[in-house]
Design a protein around this nucleic acid. Sequence first.
DNA 1: TGTGCCCTGGTA
DNA 2: TACCAGGGCACA
Length: 265
Amino acid sequence: MPELPEVEYAAQRLKTAVLGHTLNRVRVLHPATAKYLTPAAVRALVGRRVDRIERRAKIQLVHLDDGSVLEVHFRMTGDWEFSTPGDEAPRFERVRLETQEGAVVSFVDSRALGVVRWHAPGEYILPPLGPEPLTEHFTVESLQRALASRRAPIKPVLLDQRVVSGVGNIYASEALWVAKINPNTIANTITKARLTRLRDAIREVLNAAGEARYYGTQQDPNNTSEARWRVYDREGEECIRCGSAIARIVQAARSTYFCRRCQKA
DNA sequence: TGTGCCCTGGTA
DNA sequence: TACCAGGGCACA
């Protein structure tokens, strides 16, 4: 599941592959993707040069030389695959971008929930997003403000991108485990001391995931991201901190994993 | 604030 | 073969 570290890595790879390139062919290969990337958008993309690529939260923005923007969201299963003309099309290819310089970028997405959308010059507006968790803007005070009016359990609130951007279901469970906070705790009742722990935990989890992605996972098939999860997808297994069984509950239609003994409400 | 929908490959 | 996974959005 691509969350902030994975999307950051994807944006870096995209930069390396096509920054400065000119698009000369764009193909939309799945009806769900075609909902967002219309024939008119495809026509507008051809001939445009890639000027800048940035990431905000889990959104990748490809800025083109005419001021238009290609917005990409991987959602659940999206990713980039890179090849050269003549290579066999990758499995689950949904959009294919080819450049004059000879690069081929495939947006692959088995579940086809991802979004690739073109915005005319000046028309793209970022959705409301909380601070980037790995920057100095993500402070205990900003977190406290964002949670002040939230009377829902903290776990689903952390998935709200307006609270903190880029955290998804897996790392929300992981961060709450690190911070020893029960996922059912009502968000605006959490003390400042515990919010400090939570902020630090979110940073720790995202940093660790980013480093593993850059320096380990890609090269070493035994070092899978799953192996790094401390509670996620470990229902019934022993908590690696206290030995209690990890529990699974459903919150806002998403699985939450936690330790009933060492994550206090 | 919570629920269901979009999607489809993988798994039980 | 039925069900599960879940990010973001629309809707109740």
